[in-house]
């Protein structure tokens, strides 16, 4: 469960977040949809306490990020963009390292790593160094890192960017599995199909503000359009910065 309330943040002269409020429920996949520069990444960084909001609060499982950043981060898993792999480590070492940073003992981390490797079918690359991995292999490694410690909330920043169909499908399956297990999944994207196919709730963002919240169908109804893409353009009032 992730809640942000009245977040504002100014970076330089840009109002990156402007009174932003929304929540993402457990057992739901929530999409943060917005054109480039809408403030999606800024919002996600605020959730991790990496950026401090000028006003407003962000809470993770009812823990205020500003008050107890470490406690809040324990409830979070991050699939970052870019992935931030260590080229000289193998996926097994990489995943296990971050599992330990998430608070697991070395033994637990190794077990959890073995499990997630099996879950994501990473066995063939798990003991090869990350250098030279394909985009799909990198995605899987990064995803494994995000879910290895079984966090109740998983945050993904532009997860489908640069992925082929097979990898996208795998990612989709994993996200649906996580949803079924009752995790709270929040991802940012500007790819309509992904959001339409996966999300229970979509938060449309533009210029640091929430423009509309609802399921893809509700958004279509609300705007009187047939596709989410048309609805989206109607909502943000411009077609700038949108990927088809």
């Amino acid at each position: 469960m992730i809640t942000v309330a009245n977040l504002t943040k100014k970076i330089g002269d840009v109002q990156a977040l402007d009174d932003l409020s929304f929540s993402a429920e457990n057992g739901h996949i929530t999409g943060l949809l917005g054109p480039n520069g809408a403030g999606k990444t800024t919002c996600l960084r605020t959730l991790f306490g990496l950026l401090k909001p000028d006003s407003g609060t962000a809470t993770v499982d009812d823990i205020d990020v500003a008050i107890d950043p470490i406690g809040a981060k324990k409830q979070l898993g991050l699939f970052p963009d870019p992935f931030g792999l260590y080229e000289r480590l193998t996926p097994r070492e990489y995943i296990s390292f971050f599992a330990e940073l998430s608070g697991m003992s070395r033994k637990q981390a190794k077990e959890a790593t073995a499990n997630v490797i099996a879950q994501l079918k990473l066995e063939d690359i798990s003991d090869r160094r990350c250098k030279g991995f394909s985009q799909g292999q990198r995605m899987k490694t990064a995803l494994a890192q995000a879910i290895v410690h079984q966090p109740s909330n998983i945050i993904l920043d532009e997860p489908t960017r640069g992925l082929d169909v097979m990898s996208t499908r795998l990612l989709r399956d994993i996200l649906l599995q996580l949803k079924a297990q009752g995790h709270c999944v929040l991802f940012s994207s500007h790819v309509m199909q992904e959001v339409a196919a996966l999300c229970d709730r979509v938060i449309v963002m533009a210029n640091g503000k929430v423009v509309a919240i609802g399921s893809p169908d509700e958004l279509c109804q609300q705007t009187g359009k047939d596709s989410l893409e048309d609805a989206f353009i109607e909502l943000i009032g411009t077609d700038e910065g949108i990927a088809a």
Partner: peptide, 12 residues
Amino acid sequence: RNSLALLLSHPM
């Protein structure tokens, strides 16, 4: 390598 923000996103 863009891993600094990822590191700082962990509960340490």
